[in-house]
Structure formats: structure tokens, C-alpha cells
Amino acid sequence: MFKFPEVVTIPLAKGIDFIMSWLLIHLDGFFDAIGFIILQVVVGFEALFLFLPWFVIIPLAGLAGWKLVGKCKTGLVFMILMFLIGSFGYWELSMRTLSLVVASVFFSLLIGIPMGINMARSDKTEAILKPVLDGMQTMPSFVYLIPALMFFGMGKVPAMFATIIYAVPPVIRLTNVGIRTVDVEAVEASKAFGATAKQVLFDVQLPLAKPAIMVGINQTTMMALAMVVIGSMIGAKGLGMEVLLAINRIEVGKGFEAGLSIVFLAIIVDRITFSFSEKKQ
């Protein structure tokens, strides 16, 4: 057994610690501003979902299932699932979780789609971004959850921050792949008519990449939903926190109720967002 020579050390940890403390001192105002913006959006969505009473939201879910996913039966199942969540006593918490998810997806798309477009346009950008995206998806979330805490304090904002980091890669990747796999001749045809880069993008590339981008949005949504549970550990109220409490108190039944509520939400959100990707022509 050979030991790695101890003399060879790269003080990466020290460096990162140093940068962290520097950022905390000098860019305090900047992070406060970002935190403020993020918070406003979440609070806005939360206000909306809590304002709408359950007897409005449940039929709305049913309507979405019927009209978007396609079958009357699906709508009925959606309504039953939502009803079950309410009957577990988690209506309000699930609405808070939902607003967190919707807000993080909102920010993920705001960042992710333009980034994916840029990635598709330049091989160099793609080469640089790919390992970064790999890192975002595989780095244990606690590693960046702690710095997020240090920047934004406890609560919804660091949870959102961590969620966005975890959830944004799929939409970037699929936007990139979607645009890259658009029929070459269709793009050439557009260019041959003298279309500008912007015209090519909006007339041809984005419309033809739409199914792929929609799958990306669907994946991003699902990952955001998975991540908000971890977000609850740093003080974001929602179903995740209930799961956490149940585990701490070893209340298996309660844990299952909260867990199932998350699963039900996930199924509904997944089916609805996925329906956009397979829009019939």
C-alpha cells in the first residue's frame, strides 16, 4: 500500500475560506439585495397560493388534469390527490412548498434558458459549462447550503438559493441539446434567406427545440420539489420541515403522511409540466 506523499498539499480549503470571509465583509449589500429580490418573488407566490381557498385550487387542479394532460379521469385523480393532502392536515404547508417550488423554477428558467442558448451557440461555452453543471448536480447540497446560510441567513432565501443551484442544470442541458439537434437544413434555410441570428433563434431554433426545453423544465421542476425538503432544514417552512420533525420524533405515520403529500404534489406537477412537452401538432 503506497501512501500519497504528504508533502504534496494544495491549500484549496484555506483559499475558499479566505474568499468566503472576504465576500461576507465586502459584498454584504449585494447579497442582501439579491436576497430581497428572491424573497419578494417567493412571498408573492405564497400570498397567491394561500389566498386562493382549497375549494378553488382543487377544481383548478382537476381542470388542468382534464384539459392539459388530456383525460377526464386524470383530472379526477388530481382532485382526489389534492383532497387527500388536505385531509392529512397539510393544506397550508403544501401550498407553501408549492410556492417555493414555483418560485425556484421561475428563477431557474430565468437563468437556465438564456444560458442553454449561449451554450448551444458556442462549443467553448459548452466545454466550460459542462463540468460546472456536473458539479452543481453532484456536489452534496450541504456543501453549498452552509455558505448560502452565511450569505442570506436562515429562512426561505438560502433554501431557494440551494434549490436553484440543484434544479437549474436540466433546463440548461436540455435547452442546449434541443437547439443543437434542430434540423440543420431548417437553420440553413433560415440563414439563406438572410435571417439575423435573433431571427434564426426565435423563428426556428427555439420553436423546434421546444419539446426538449419542456422536458428540461419538467425535470427542473421535479428536482426543485425534491430539494425543498432539504431546504426545510435551514428554516424554510413547508412539507419538508414536517418530514424532518416526524423523523426526529420517530413518528413513522406522520412522516409517511407528509412524505406522501410531497409525492402527490410531485405527480400532479410532473404530469402538468410534461404535457407541455408533447404538444400535439
Binding site: 434540423d183 437544413e185 431548417a186 434555410a189 433560415s190 439563406a192 434567406f193 420553436p207 423546434l208
Partner: peptide
């Protein structure tokens, strides 16, 4: 110019 392509290069949407 006007150009015509082998695989038509039409815009399916």
C-alpha cells in the same frame, strides 16, 4: 438568393 434543400429544410411548426 433563394435556396432549396435536399431534405426540404421546412419549418414543421
Amino acid at each position: 438568393f433563394g435556396m432549396v434543400f435536399q431534405h426540404y429544410g421546412l419549418f414543421p411548426h
